[in-house]
Design a protein around this nucleic acid. Structure first.
Lengths: 224, 224
DNA sequence: CATCAGCGATATCGCCGCTAAGGCATGACA
DNA sequence: TGTCATGCCTTAGCGGCGATATCGCTGATG
């Protein structure tokens, strides 16, 4: 039923769906829909979450190489490709809807954070992963909506890559230059990420927690 | 009537309006609304365009100092402030709506291009103004929507300024460094902007047109 | 003063989200 | 095995929405 609703959403001209149409497409009647989802909003949330599942499988298929930064760049392009191919679903997932309980956006955010943590563990980040994720996700959503918004003016691929480079270069360390500009901060971020990724047996949990907070205090103030 | 509709939009819980409610708030009946705007979409377009008017006056009040780059930065912050203060209207203006004939977004784009042309005339840009405008507008919309989307996770001011710096530094020339990295390109962009701003009497119109195309060919390929 | 064009209101249509009341199967129990 | 209780689904309907056909009023014109 969710898939039927998603089809109707994709083919509708105004990015809207009618519960009646969805029900009679599946061959049931309205009350079952309201039993399952409680509400039209609930149905939309379910569609968005289902959209996240597709998004996640698409991501899982292409990421996870040896170079996390390359994965990050590929992830940007994959995100925009997803938006291009499912415009209505994309807007449902990433555009602010009042009273939406969908977790799609949050989980996409977490996916991005995971990749960024791998980058940080490789010493390629010089801001906290969550901050970088907010930057990257906001920028990519803006870019995707700009391109969905219509073929008014598109230098599309060039624009997308320009944006990508702009954000990434403000978030990633230059290959060899930035590393030594603030080595303490870089090293602290790297250690933070490594601890978050694998943990350690050498310290007690309480000690690790305190260490993480120290590292956060080291990395927080300066914003190069 | 447009203002009444905008009020209803701002106070509505689901970012929607009902033509009936708008009409009875103004004291007329539905057919007059459909006579004036033809359609509910027409009413929404009118609201968006009216929103642009407020946006434009707000911009006109604060910009136009001697330093176009400072104006640009202030414009970014003003844009986000506008989004913060009118969330529903902002989404109406800048979020993709199918079959929308509103010119709000395009005119905001033009406003931004105007400021960017002033930057280019000062030699502070190293991409074409329209390209830079697409980048900046996309990024700021993404940022604004991210922040409207809810107080899930906000480092808000820091995030906005980080994004601003990321995009601007990819679009603006560094104060003294970038200028000499590709002086030909920079000079060509500068001349292009100056011609677009003031024109010249020394050349015939056809000659100016050809010159502009040459300058565009000089500035197009390389993307530092 | 009679006529007619233009505009606004009433009443209505079809569709929407949503829900209450009835029918039908299934399974437990005497 | 017959009877009853329990879920689930369907039918039917409510109120509200966007949009419109029809009619009555007003005011300018000859």
């Amino acid at each position: 039923m969710i898939e039927a609703a998603e089809r109707q959403l994709a083919t509708s001209s105004d990015n809207e769906i009618a519960t009646r149409a969805v029900c009679e497409a599946v061959g049931v009647s309205q009350p079952v829909l309201y039993r399952l989802f409680g509400d039209k909003r609930g149905l939309l949330d379910a569609i968005a979450d289902h959209g996240y599942e597709r998004y996640a499988t698409l991501k899982a298929a292409q990421e996870q190489t040896a170079d996390p930064v390359a994965d990050l760049r590929a992830g940007w392009d994959g995100h925009l490709a997803f938006a291009r191919e499912n415009p209505a679903l994309y807007q449902l997932m990433f555009t602010p809807r009042p009273w939406s309980h969908s977790t799609a956006r949050g989980r996409v955010f977490d996916l991005l954070v995971a990749t960024l943590v791998r980058c940080a563990a490789a010493g390629a980040l010089h801001v906290e992963p969550r901050t970088a994720a907010q930057l990257i996700l906001s920028a990519s959503i803006g870019n995707a909506l700009h391109h969905i918004s219509g073929p008014a003016l598109f230098d599309d691929p060039a624009l997308s890559h320009r944006m990508r480079d702009a954000v990434f270069s403000h978030v990633l360390t230059e290959p060899t230059a930035q590393e030594d500009a603030d080595p303490l901060r870089t090293a602290a971020l790297r250690l933070h990420a490594q601890l978050g990724l694998g943990g350690t047996d050498a310290l007690e949990p309480a000690e690790v927690a305190l260490l993480l907070r120290w590292l956060e205090r080291i990395t927080r103030p300066s914003t190069p």
